[in-house]
């Protein structure tokens, strides 16, 4: 098997630096590769796009998607929006925090799961919904949530 070498921050920035409005695509790419946007990356982006570090930090911190520190092995997002509220999402989030012994916005002590809120996954006919990394799950009651968590390594 071919072991692909992880690209460097500079290489990832280089991919998109030439396109108009490059900052968000670069941040997405960095997070895709490294899981978060490091302080070092902020400095390098600023240099590559001729922006100040403050400007780059301002953008990174504006958007919920971008993280400034490494997440757990899995990111579990629980929908907090109205449709899911109507089917018990508030109770589901409380259950998740208890089951994972982790507060929303934090990573479990074993580094396995980062628990995050999300405002709508567009899966509203089957509320409540959650997302694990990129996969969306519908009709998630407490029992299904526990099953899904058990299926994670």
């Amino acid at each position: 098997m071919n072991v692909e070498q992880e690209p460097t921050v500079a290489e990832v920035i280089e991919r998109s630096a030439g396109m108009p409005g490059a900052l968000l695509p670069i941040l997405h790419d960095l997070q895709e590769v490294f899981g978060f946007v490091s302080d070092e990356a902020v400095v390098q982006i600023a240099h590559a796009l001729n922006l100040s570090r403050a400007e780059v930090h301002g953008v990174v911190s504006f958007y919920h998607t971008f993280r400034r520190k490494a997440p757990g092995r899995y990111v579990v997002q629980i929908c907090r929006a109205e449709s899911c509220q109507s089917m018990g999402a508030r109770a589901l989030e409380a259950h998740a925090q208890q089951a994972l012994e982790t507060k929303t916005g934090e990573t479990s002590a074993d580094g396995r799961v980062t628990l995050e809120p999300v405002y709508c996954l567009g899966n509203c006919a089957c509320s409540p919904s959650i997302r694990i990394d990129r996969d969306v799950f519908g009709f998630v009651d407490e029992a299904r949530f526990d099953e899904l968590m058990e299926s994670l390594s």
Partner: peptide, 25 residues
């Protein structure tokens, strides 16, 4: 295709344009 980044207000058209330009929404 350009991806947003979890900001609801970027559905407002002028915030969306700012975001497309690589700025805060």
């Amino acid at each position: 295709v350009r991806l947003g980044a979890g900001s609801y207000v970027c559905g407002e058209e002028t915030a969306l344009l700012e975001s497309l330009e690589g700025k805060r929404g």
